[in-house]
Design a protein around this nucleic acid. Structure first.
Lengths: 332, 332
DNA sequence: CCCTTGGACTAAAGCGCTTAAGTTCCCGTC
DNA sequence: GACGGGAACTTAAGCGCTTTAGTCCAAGGG
């Protein structure tokens, strides 16, 4: 039966390839994994046989054999509406893919649509099932429970952001805070003296980092800190700043709408800067001054770092690109 | 060695659970898969043992044993900038996750950042590696090469959209065209007689479907078709329509900017409708009339259909929600 | 009382790889 | 000319499940 050459179409296995190349299956395995122990000619013959049969090693079998899933996990816990507005995620994702493309790791994505903090269970399950070899963490919160959960899971992880507490994993960060400082400095340069800050969700570490950057920049300029608000443009405008630094374009667009409602002209009565240079920035009116961070590079670096950690190799260095301030009409 | 109770911490296996529950590993397998052949009491004992050990079946081992990956694949081939602007993808994704959450299938995501059509290779590779049990196809193009590739791969697939050619897979579609017709009808009602159409990429089937819906609606109203353009708002405005139906909010925002440049007031000189009700719609000025399609429901249904196909079960019925026209200032 | 039947469970053979531990064979060495 | 050593392969034992083919036993039927 199993030797029947007329067997039904099934996926070829390593043995089919071995037979066709006239070697043992171990030789095929060696050849496919670039290990030494196979001669040049033999290797070529094996690869040719594999090509002719259209064979690729079975990922599950491989995973089982070497105890590695060959995949990494990314869990997102923001509500969809937030993801939609925020270009971070997709750019970061594109970067991850770029890093993964050269290896043959896959990306397991899980979008947890819940409100509130991530269900740490979800990580544990994926880890317990051996579906992934490691995790990428983004949207780090100040008190992030996921870090503990992952530490217990025994899998490597890489944090995209700067964890507040002690953290056993490698962490990468962009120069986003510097970008926010640049936006603030830009407004100072324009002569503003009452510059407010409008952030998103207070619990995210990056919001806090940006708040600090804003404060520090004002300090450097010898200015009093302006009003600070999170989430609500109305609150931000209530204190009547002459300029407002926002941590996302969506917030800035919200502030724009609020300003319009109050009869304030932008940038005349109120200068506004956004963040991330999303499509909103160029298309809103007036177009928003914004800051562009290379999140794709960030994603690529984070994935590369994770792959290195999985391979127990030294982590690659990450040189985050400088943020770019893109000045448009909203800041005068 | 292997019986050493003080062995190093490693993930528990089915045998550990079996031993603890005092049964064979087969019984554990049966219990975990809800098959008959284990008594109620035994089943409970097994589940308890599994819980105590924190054991979940290994996904790779399972995949190998049953010849199923336990994962589905979604490949995206739009350039990132497009994905960013278009809320379809994330909403669709959220829906998929909703469907997957109850089963224990994982989602393998691949973002192909290339320009141009999808590299069909990418599908083949994932299939050949046995990483996925089926595919979800979106962004169907008129002449879509992926359908042939997938048909050859021998894996089930579900098409989110309406394939133009013959297609061996189940296909689902929303009532988006109806939504575009509603937007058109809305403009007709407002008294417009010269209503243009501005689409995105001509090669997508859904753009064509919307173009047709627009044309049909105008016909129904006894109006001549207005100017048609793809991609470029400037072209759309050159023919001086009094109203413009756009197939995305980003296009509509572009048209808005173009109108402003030409000194046209919106909606006074030109009424504009967008599509998808993205964050852009509410935040641009004037806010955009738009159409909301329940893409999350769509994603959920598509994933459910795929899971059914994989299980060789009859496909669930999909009752696409009615599109909702959201009228805002841009249409008068 | 024997035989069938079916439910509860076990033994063991895969699934398609990887890899530790050989086995050959050849080459260089003293 | 025997011998050590290394490159090129092979053998076979896993990896952790699923599943087929039993085994065993109690209950029911004749």
């Amino acid at each position: 039966m199993t030797e029947n050459p007329e067997q039904a179409r099934r996926r070829p296995t390593i043995d089919d390839v071995a037979r066709r190349a006239g070697v043992s299956s171990a030789a095929v395995s060696f050849a496919m994994n670039g290990r030494r122990g196979v001669g040049e000619a033999t290797r070529a013959r094996i690869l040719e046989a594999a090509g002719e049969l259209g064979w690729s090693p079975s990922a599950p079998a491989r995973a089982l054999g070497r105890g590695r899933a060959g995949a990494i996990g990314l869990l997102l816990a923001r509500p969809v509406e937030t993801l939609e507005v925020d270009p971070f995620f997709l750019r970061f994702l594109a970067g991850i893919e770029r890093a993964l493309a050269s290896t043959d790791h896959a990306l397991l994505l899980r979008v947890l649509d819940d409100e509130g903090p991530v269900d740490p269970e979800a990580y544990g399950r994926l880890a317990a099932q051996g579906r992934v070899d490691g995790f990428l963490l983004s949207d780090v919160e100040l008190e992030d429970p996921r870090i503990d959960v992952l530490a217990k899971a025994g899998l490597p992880a890489v944090v995209a952001g700067r964890p507040a507490g002690p953290c056993p994993f490698a962490a990468l960060e962009t120069r986003h805070a510097e970008g926010l400082a640049a936006a603030t400095a830009h407004l100072v340069e324009r002569g503003h003296e009452r510059i407010g800050f409008l952030g998103g969700l207070e619990r995210f570490e990056f919001e806090q980092a940006r708040l600090q950057a804003w404060g520090a920049e004002l300090g450097r300029a010898g200015l009093e800190p302006g009003p600070v608000a999170f989430g609500d443009p109305a609150v931000a405008l209530a204190a009547e700043p002459t300029a407002l630094v926002c941590t996302s374009d969506a917030l800035a667009a919200g502030a724009l709408a609020e300003a319009r409602e109050r009869g304030l002209s932008v940038p005349g009565d109120l200068a506004i800067t956004g963040f991330d240079d999303s499509s909103l920035a160029a298309l809103s009116s007036p177009p928003l001054t914004s800051v562009r961070i290379d999140y794709a590079q960030f994603g690529e670096a984070a994935a590369a770092a994770l792959l290195a950690a999985i391979a127990e190799a030294p982590p690659p260095v990450f040189e985050p690109a400088a943020p770019r301030l893109i000045v448009r009409a909203s800041s005068g």
